[in-house]
Design a protein around this nucleic acid. Structure first.
Length: 267
DNA sequence: TTGTGTTTTATTGCCTCC
DNA sequence: GGAGGCAATAAAACACAA
Protein backbone atom coordinates (compact mmCIF):
# COMPACT_ATOMS: atom_id res chain seq x y z
CA UNK A 1 0.00 0.00 0.00
CA UNK A 2 1.44 3.28 -1.04
CA UNK A 3 0.50 6.28 0.99
CA UNK A 4 0.11 9.66 -0.58
CA UNK A 5 2.70 12.34 -0.05
CA UNK A 6 1.52 15.03 2.26
CA UNK A 7 2.19 18.70 2.01
CA UNK A 8 0.68 21.76 3.53
CA UNK A 9 -1.63 23.97 1.60
CA UNK A 10 -1.27 27.61 2.62
CA UNK A 11 -4.54 28.49 1.07
CA UNK A 12 -6.71 26.41 3.30
CA UNK A 13 -5.77 26.93 6.93
CA UNK A 14 -3.49 24.08 7.74
CA UNK A 15 -4.90 21.75 5.18
CA UNK A 16 -2.52 19.47 3.38
CA UNK A 17 -1.70 18.76 -0.20
CA UNK A 18 -1.37 15.20 -1.31
CA UNK A 19 0.36 13.28 -3.99
CA UNK A 20 -0.46 9.70 -4.69
CA UNK A 21 -3.63 7.72 -4.44
CA UNK A 22 -6.62 9.56 -3.16
CA UNK A 23 -9.85 8.19 -1.91
CA UNK A 24 -12.70 9.86 -3.70
CA UNK A 25 -14.32 10.91 -0.46
CA UNK A 26 -11.38 13.18 0.41
CA UNK A 27 -10.65 14.72 -2.92
CA UNK A 28 -12.41 17.92 -2.07
CA UNK A 29 -9.53 18.92 0.17
CA UNK A 30 -6.61 17.67 -1.84
CA UNK A 31 -4.51 18.97 -4.63
CA UNK A 32 -1.17 18.13 -6.16
CA UNK A 33 2.08 20.00 -6.13
CA UNK A 34 5.56 19.43 -7.44
CA UNK A 35 7.33 17.01 -5.18
CA UNK A 36 10.76 18.43 -5.94
CA UNK A 37 9.72 21.70 -4.42
CA UNK A 38 8.89 19.91 -1.23
CA UNK A 39 12.36 18.76 -0.40
CA UNK A 40 14.88 20.50 1.82
CA UNK A 41 12.30 22.62 3.53
CA UNK A 42 11.72 22.20 7.19
CA UNK A 43 10.17 24.07 10.04
CA UNK A 44 9.65 23.18 13.66
CA UNK A 45 6.59 21.29 14.76
CA UNK A 46 3.97 22.54 17.15
CA UNK A 47 3.42 25.54 14.96
CA UNK A 48 0.86 27.95 16.27
CA UNK A 49 -2.50 28.38 14.67
CA UNK A 50 -1.41 31.85 13.65
CA UNK A 51 1.50 30.41 11.73
CA UNK A 52 -0.82 28.03 10.00
CA UNK A 53 -2.79 30.99 8.72
CA UNK A 54 0.27 32.95 7.68
CA UNK A 55 0.59 32.93 3.92
CA UNK A 56 4.06 34.43 3.98
CA UNK A 57 5.20 31.74 6.30
CA UNK A 58 4.01 29.09 3.93
CA UNK A 59 5.51 30.87 0.98
CA UNK A 60 8.85 30.58 2.70
CA UNK A 61 8.51 27.24 4.31
CA UNK A 62 6.51 25.23 1.84
CA UNK A 63 6.14 22.43 1.56
CA UNK A 64 5.74 20.45 4.74
CA UNK A 65 5.31 16.86 5.63
CA UNK A 66 3.21 15.28 8.28
CA UNK A 67 3.16 17.37 11.40
CA UNK A 68 2.03 16.77 14.95
CA UNK A 69 -0.72 18.69 16.55
CA UNK A 70 0.17 21.20 19.19
CA UNK A 71 -0.29 20.29 22.86
CA UNK A 72 -3.14 22.77 23.04
CA UNK A 73 -4.87 21.18 20.10
CA UNK A 74 -4.40 17.72 21.55
CA UNK A 75 -5.68 18.88 24.92
CA UNK A 76 -8.86 20.25 23.42
CA UNK A 77 -9.36 17.14 21.32
CA UNK A 78 -8.85 14.96 24.37
CA UNK A 79 -11.41 16.92 26.33
CA UNK A 80 -13.85 16.60 23.50
CA UNK A 81 -13.15 12.90 23.24
CA UNK A 82 -13.79 12.43 26.93
CA UNK A 83 -17.15 14.10 26.56
CA UNK A 84 -18.10 11.89 23.64
CA UNK A 85 -15.88 9.60 21.61
CA UNK A 86 -18.16 9.84 18.63
CA UNK A 87 -18.00 12.86 16.44
CA UNK A 88 -21.14 14.35 14.98
CA UNK A 89 -20.72 16.49 11.88
CA UNK A 90 -21.60 19.70 13.67
CA UNK A 91 -19.16 19.09 16.46
CA UNK A 92 -16.48 18.13 13.99
CA UNK A 93 -16.93 21.35 12.10
CA UNK A 94 -16.91 23.41 15.28
CA UNK A 95 -13.84 21.68 16.64
CA UNK A 96 -12.00 22.10 13.38
CA UNK A 97 -12.82 25.77 13.36
CA UNK A 98 -11.71 26.24 16.95
CA UNK A 99 -8.47 24.35 16.41
CA UNK A 100 -7.57 25.72 13.02
CA UNK A 101 -7.66 22.26 11.53
CA UNK A 102 -9.46 20.65 8.66
CA UNK A 103 -12.59 18.72 9.67
CA UNK A 104 -10.95 15.70 8.09
CA UNK A 105 -8.00 16.03 10.49
CA UNK A 106 -10.37 16.14 13.43
CA UNK A 107 -12.18 13.08 12.16
CA UNK A 108 -8.91 11.23 11.67
CA UNK A 109 -7.74 12.18 15.14
CA UNK A 110 -10.95 10.81 16.65
CA UNK A 111 -10.65 7.65 14.60
CA UNK A 112 -7.11 7.04 15.78
CA UNK A 113 -8.01 7.99 19.32
CA UNK A 114 -10.82 5.43 19.36
CA UNK A 115 -8.38 2.81 18.10
CA UNK A 116 -5.93 3.66 20.88
CA UNK A 117 -8.71 3.55 23.44
CA UNK A 118 -9.80 0.16 22.22
CA UNK A 119 -6.27 -1.19 22.46
CA UNK A 120 -5.94 0.06 26.00
CA UNK A 121 -9.32 -1.34 26.87
CA UNK A 122 -8.28 -4.75 25.59
CA UNK A 123 -5.17 -4.59 27.75
CA UNK A 124 -7.25 -3.71 30.78
CA UNK A 125 -9.68 -6.52 30.03
CA UNK A 126 -6.84 -8.96 29.69
CA UNK A 127 -5.33 -7.92 33.01
CA UNK A 128 -8.72 -8.23 34.65
CA UNK A 129 -9.29 -11.67 33.18
CA UNK A 130 -5.86 -12.84 34.19
CA UNK A 131 -6.37 -11.68 37.76
CA UNK A 132 -9.72 -13.44 37.84
CA UNK A 133 -8.23 -16.60 36.48
CA UNK A 134 -5.37 -16.54 38.96
CA UNK A 135 -7.81 -16.03 41.78
CA UNK A 136 -10.05 -18.86 40.63
CA UNK A 137 -7.09 -21.14 40.15
CA UNK A 138 -5.82 -20.38 43.61
CA UNK A 139 -9.21 -21.05 45.11
CA UNK A 140 -9.52 -24.26 43.22
CA UNK A 141 -6.19 -25.50 44.47
CA UNK A 142 -7.12 -24.84 48.06
CA UNK A 143 -10.46 -26.53 47.56
CA UNK A 144 -8.74 -29.55 46.11
CA UNK A 145 -6.52 -29.81 49.16
CA UNK A 146 -9.50 -29.50 51.45
CA UNK A 147 -11.26 -32.19 49.52
CA UNK A 148 -8.33 -34.57 49.90
CA UNK A 149 -8.18 -33.83 53.58
CA UNK A 150 -11.87 -34.60 54.03
CA UNK A 151 -11.58 -37.81 52.07
CA UNK A 152 -8.73 -38.95 54.27
CA UNK A 153 -10.74 -38.12 57.33
CA UNK A 154 -13.72 -40.00 56.00
CA UNK A 155 -11.57 -43.00 55.29
CA UNK A 156 -10.17 -42.91 58.78
CA UNK A 157 -13.61 -42.66 60.38
CA UNK A 158 -14.98 -45.42 58.22
CA UNK A 159 -12.28 -47.77 59.38
CA UNK A 160 -12.72 -46.72 62.97
CA UNK A 161 -16.42 -47.52 63.03
CA UNK A 162 -16.09 -50.75 61.09
CA UNK A 163 -17.40 -53.46 63.49
CA UNK A 164 -15.45 -56.68 63.67
CA UNK A 165 -17.05 -59.34 61.45
CA UNK A 166 -18.52 -62.36 63.14
CA UNK A 167 -18.81 -65.59 61.22
CA UNK A 168 -22.61 -65.86 61.69
CA UNK A 169 -23.35 -67.00 58.20
CA UNK A 170 -26.14 -64.44 58.01
CA UNK A 171 -26.51 -61.68 55.53
CA UNK A 172 -23.63 -59.30 55.27
CA UNK A 173 -26.06 -56.43 55.59
CA UNK A 174 -25.91 -56.59 59.34
CA UNK A 175 -22.19 -56.17 59.40
CA UNK A 176 -21.96 -53.32 56.97
CA UNK A 177 -20.28 -50.19 58.18
CA UNK A 178 -22.31 -47.33 59.43
CA UNK A 179 -24.03 -45.56 56.58
CA UNK A 180 -21.80 -42.60 56.52
CA UNK A 181 -22.70 -40.93 53.37
CA UNK A 182 -19.68 -39.26 51.88
CA UNK A 183 -20.56 -35.83 50.69
CA UNK A 184 -19.99 -35.59 47.03
CA UNK A 185 -18.09 -32.40 46.83
CA UNK A 186 -18.59 -30.67 43.62
CA UNK A 187 -16.77 -27.68 42.44
CA UNK A 188 -18.74 -25.64 40.06
CA UNK A 189 -17.08 -22.97 38.01
CA UNK A 190 -19.28 -20.34 36.55
CA UNK A 191 -17.12 -19.59 33.59
CA UNK A 192 -15.01 -21.33 31.05
CA UNK A 193 -11.80 -19.52 31.61
CA UNK A 194 -10.02 -20.52 28.45
CA UNK A 195 -12.94 -19.31 26.43
CA UNK A 196 -12.63 -15.92 28.01
CA UNK A 197 -8.91 -15.73 27.59
CA UNK A 198 -8.94 -16.90 24.03
CA UNK A 199 -9.80 -14.39 21.35
CA UNK A 200 -10.50 -17.05 18.80
CA UNK A 201 -13.66 -19.04 18.38
CA UNK A 202 -11.83 -22.32 18.11
CA UNK A 203 -10.19 -22.35 21.52
CA UNK A 204 -8.65 -25.67 22.31
CA UNK A 205 -9.71 -27.77 25.22
CA UNK A 206 -7.87 -27.26 28.46
CA UNK A 207 -7.09 -30.27 30.56
CA UNK A 208 -5.53 -29.93 33.94
CA UNK A 209 -3.94 -33.27 34.74
CA UNK A 210 -3.24 -32.44 38.33
CA UNK A 211 -6.72 -31.38 39.12
CA UNK A 212 -8.51 -33.81 36.82
CA UNK A 213 -10.49 -30.85 35.66
CA UNK A 214 -11.61 -30.78 32.13
CA UNK A 215 -12.68 -27.58 30.57
CA UNK A 216 -13.79 -28.00 27.03
CA UNK A 217 -14.73 -25.01 24.98
CA UNK A 218 -17.05 -27.18 22.95
CA UNK A 219 -19.60 -27.69 25.69
CA UNK A 220 -20.94 -25.85 28.63
CA UNK A 221 -20.39 -28.12 31.56
CA UNK A 222 -17.96 -28.54 34.33
CA UNK A 223 -17.46 -32.05 35.55
CA UNK A 224 -15.10 -33.88 37.84
CA UNK A 225 -14.21 -37.42 36.95
CA UNK A 226 -14.59 -38.39 40.56
CA UNK A 227 -18.23 -37.34 40.73
CA UNK A 228 -19.47 -37.77 37.24
CA UNK A 229 -23.03 -37.17 38.30
CA UNK A 230 -22.14 -33.85 39.69
CA UNK A 231 -22.41 -31.69 36.67
CA UNK A 232 -23.64 -28.18 36.36
CA UNK A 233 -24.35 -26.09 33.37
CA UNK A 234 -22.30 -22.96 33.26
CA UNK A 235 -22.70 -19.69 31.57
CA UNK A 236 -20.32 -19.89 28.69
CA UNK A 237 -22.05 -17.85 26.06
CA UNK A 238 -20.47 -14.83 24.55
CA UNK A 239 -22.75 -11.89 24.37
CA UNK A 240 -21.35 -11.00 20.98
CA UNK A 241 -21.22 -7.35 21.75
CA UNK A 242 -18.41 -5.38 20.22
CA UNK A 243 -18.88 -1.98 21.61
CA UNK A 244 -15.40 -1.88 23.03
CA UNK A 245 -16.56 -1.42 26.57
CA UNK A 246 -16.39 -3.99 29.34
CA UNK A 247 -16.33 -7.04 27.17
CA UNK A 248 -16.10 -9.41 30.06
CA UNK A 249 -16.81 -7.37 33.09
CA UNK A 250 -20.28 -8.86 33.38
CA UNK A 251 -18.76 -12.27 33.66
CA UNK A 252 -15.89 -11.55 35.96
CA UNK A 253 -17.45 -8.90 38.03
CA UNK A 254 -17.84 -11.42 40.84
CA UNK A 255 -14.13 -12.09 40.94
CA UNK A 256 -13.67 -9.43 43.55
CA UNK A 257 -15.74 -11.42 45.93
CA UNK A 258 -13.66 -12.93 48.69
CA UNK A 259 -15.31 -16.32 48.48
CA UNK A 260 -14.80 -18.78 45.67
CA UNK A 261 -17.53 -18.63 43.13
CA UNK A 262 -20.13 -21.26 42.71
CA UNK A 263 -19.29 -23.77 45.39
CA UNK A 264 -21.87 -26.46 45.77
CA UNK A 265 -21.98 -29.35 48.19
CA UNK A 266 -24.71 -31.86 48.08
CA UNK A 267 -25.24 -35.53 48.72
C1' DT B 1 25.61 10.18 16.21
C1' DT B 2 23.12 6.40 15.01
C1' DG B 3 20.30 2.47 15.16
C1' DT B 4 16.01 0.91 16.83
C1' DG B 5 11.60 0.81 18.94
C1' DT B 6 7.35 3.51 19.82
C1' DT B 7 3.89 6.96 18.92
C1' DT B 8 1.27 9.83 16.01
C1' DT B 9 -0.86 11.27 11.79
C1' DA B 10 -2.79 9.90 7.68
C1' DT B 11 -4.30 6.62 3.78
C1' DT B 12 -6.60 2.68 1.84
C1' DG B 13 -10.02 -0.69 1.32
C1' DC B 14 -13.92 -2.78 2.94
C1' DC B 15 -18.24 -2.78 5.40
C1' DT B 16 -22.67 -1.01 7.17
C1' DC B 17 -26.35 2.14 7.34
C1' DC B 18 -29.64 5.30 5.59
C1' DG C 1 -24.63 5.59 -3.84
C1' DG C 2 -22.68 8.55 -0.40
C1' DA C 3 -21.16 9.13 4.38
C1' DG C 4 -18.89 7.43 8.05
C1' DG C 5 -16.76 3.65 10.82
C1' DC C 6 -13.07 0.31 11.44
C1' DA C 7 -8.80 -2.63 10.60
C1' DA C 8 -4.59 -2.69 8.56
C1' DT C 9 -0.90 -0.27 7.18
C1' DA C 10 2.60 3.44 5.84
C1' DA C 11 5.52 6.84 7.09
C1' DA C 12 7.09 10.80 9.72
C1' DA C 13 8.22 12.25 14.25
C1' DC C 14 9.90 11.22 18.50
C1' DA C 15 12.43 8.76 22.44
C1' DC C 16 16.27 6.61 23.99
C1' DA C 17 20.07 3.47 24.64
C1' DA C 18 24.70 2.31 23.05
Amino acid sequence: MESGRIFFDPSCQGNMLFMGNADSRFQGTRSVMNMDESLNKKRPFFSTAEELYDDEYFDEQLPEKKRRLSPEQVHLLEKSFEADNKLEPDRKTQLAKNLGLQPRQVAVWFQNRRARWKTKQLERDYDELKASFDSLHSNYDSVLKENDKLKAELHSLTEKFQPAKEPTGESDQKSEPLPINPLPLCLQLNVKVEDRLSTGSDGSAVVDDDSRQHLDSGDSYFQTSEYPDCMAAVDGEEDGSDDGQGYYSDVFGAADQPEPMGWCIWS
